[in-house]
Write a protein that binds this DNA or RNA. Structure first.
Lengths: 192, 192, 192, 192
DNA sequence: AATGAATGAGTATTCATTCAT
DNA sequence: CATGAATGAATACTCATTCAT
């Protein structure tokens, strides 16, 4: 196994464990023994536990970003773009468990690194939404008063769907929730 | 100081510290020294640190619940009710810092206690929304296809506004975001 | 065993181990198991390993200081005072093993605490010597050109006898070395 | 770069780092990265970190030895010889930082290797002093009762000046201290 | 000759919890 | 009621050394 492979192995295991137990409850020992390597080996590839976590989160974000951009580029209409943005974001977000764990607890510790990552990602999504809205307005399919605020509200609303909350053990029917959200969304901003 | 007072003192201090540093980073020692009592005294009043946290969160939830119910009862129209629900929930949520910290990290540890609390609260809010929507439909002011799903989507969307995310140090303008969200919301479900 | 006793116990054990193995090679585990107490107990009484070391060294210094002052006060003549200063310092220094371990290695780590302690002790000894020399000059029994420098040289010379260097396993005959040193000393500064 | 050169490079870097940070705080990694070679390469040239240290110290001692011998050979009178012995030893000692770090901490670890080196060096210096004293006595310029003990006392006294102790950031004025020491020394052993 | 990779064995420190008084 | 004292169990990180190539 060559160098990159082992680094990848560590990241793979770490990603799984962080997703399952969170940053604090996943010890470096856990990662090492799960990966069947010495603990010190992990410190050969990474400076600290936090660096591992940051790398995992960075990657998840990159994956999400690409998925969204690709999905949008395939759509023509602003409505279609908005739709795949929401759908892709939601469906992919569930794979990116660790990103969601970046709560303020963690942010406080890893400031300013992770916070920056979050902010820049937030801003990028905001811009994507704004562009779609602008395009829609130009094409006469959307009617939006304050584009910036509307985009902000939409992104925030989407955040609420990020977490895979469960009820009585059964996961929320995300698909249908998204449809309902889109329904509300479109009926509101489409030109009648 | 009588028994109940000391218990309250502990809860008050704990709430403050949990809010500031989170569950993990707030040690029982911190609470004890801030409250100027012995650490063991805390264990006289509470079985464990987690019990303290659960109590704190329970109370925050109760406060939120009452605030919402009271606000709604003062409104007549379904639109007004929906409006104050959203506004009250958002404005009060920012006072309830600890509730917001109940991420899956914590949930994993305190399962099943806190998870139940969350679920039942979620369900209660869902019902409140459903009732408002139903009333609106009956009165002919709302047009909603699937009430359950719509309510679910709305609650989820609200979750996104819970966290006081900041950008470049400036806090998001929650007030305006909420207005924008309501704008989308109403333009979509109101009968034209 | 009451609180002070246990603190003392820890210091006693620590002093022994530091003396035998040095600061770095004495682990907190070592101290704990030698004292037959839990490792965490040590952290109940002391903030850190370095605090233990500092306490040990502070005490050794205090002991030395008192011994010297007491010995000097019993002597009348400047020669006698100088003599007991040297003798007391040397004989007691061998009990104060840890003080001698405060090399620059350690000083770098514990700067500025221990360094200050060393400096102030150095200065105090310097003053004692200066006073004795001055008194001797006044009484006409000593002939010293530059009192400050002479005192400095004398203290420095004494430092050389602090370390219990051994040769072929046999310890240096400190007693006789001291006598020889005093011999040189007096023949030099006494008025002929 | 041929074999010997690389070995020398390692020693040069090691000497610098040991001098600056001490044996314990200088890691093999530090040496390797400073020398821009692989860590394992160091183990190709040296059996262990301690062997590097020992080599460094051995060389420093050899340098000191030669400097002293050369300086003495240029002097005619016993007084002159004694004088340059002290001066050379002190001035050179400050270049030989690592030798001075050989405290008992280190000795314990590297016993018996370094201890032997120290002892034999000590003995050699003792002999040099004795010879000078003997010569002085024969020539009638020195008056010494017990030559062995006097030499021992003198060497010990010199040790005290080895360490570049600083006070309030300003280094001790070693030059002047040495002069004062010589002053005491000569006024004591010279025939009046 | 040179080294990238791997690791075993530490090491200081934290902290929730227990218990005797 | 209240708490001082004690601790077991974790936990992140270090580093000299080995070995296959």
């Amino acid at each position: 196994m060559i160098k990159e492979d082992k680094r990848e192995l560590i990241l793979k295991i770490a990603r799984k464990l962080f997703a399952r137990y969170g940053l604090k409850k996943t010890s470096v020992d856990d990662i090492a023994s799960e990966a069947k390597i010495g603990k010190a080996t992990i410190y050969y590839y990474f400076k600290s536990k936090q660096e591992i976590f940051k790398t995992v989160v960075d990657r998840e974000l990159a994956i999400l970003k690409n998925a969204i951009k690709e999905a949008i580029s395939k759509e023509e209409s602003p409505q279609g773009k908005l739709r795949v943005f929401v759908l892709t974001r939601i469906s992919r977000m569930h794979e990116l468990v660790n990103l969601n764990r970046v709560t303020r607890d963690i942010v406080t510790e890893m400031l300013p690194d992770l916070e920056k990552v979050r902010e820049s990602h937030f801003r990028e999504e905001l811009n994507i939404i704004k562009e779609i809205l602008n395009e829609g307005v130009k094409k006469g399919v959307f009617k939006v008063r304050k584009i910036g605020l509307t985009a902000l509200a939409m992104i925030s609303a989407l955040k609420g769907l990020e977490y895979p909350w469960t009820m009585e053990g059964k996961p929320l029917d995300i698909e249908k929730s998204v449809d309902a959200l889109l329904q509300i969304l479109f009926a509101g901003i489409e030109v009648k």
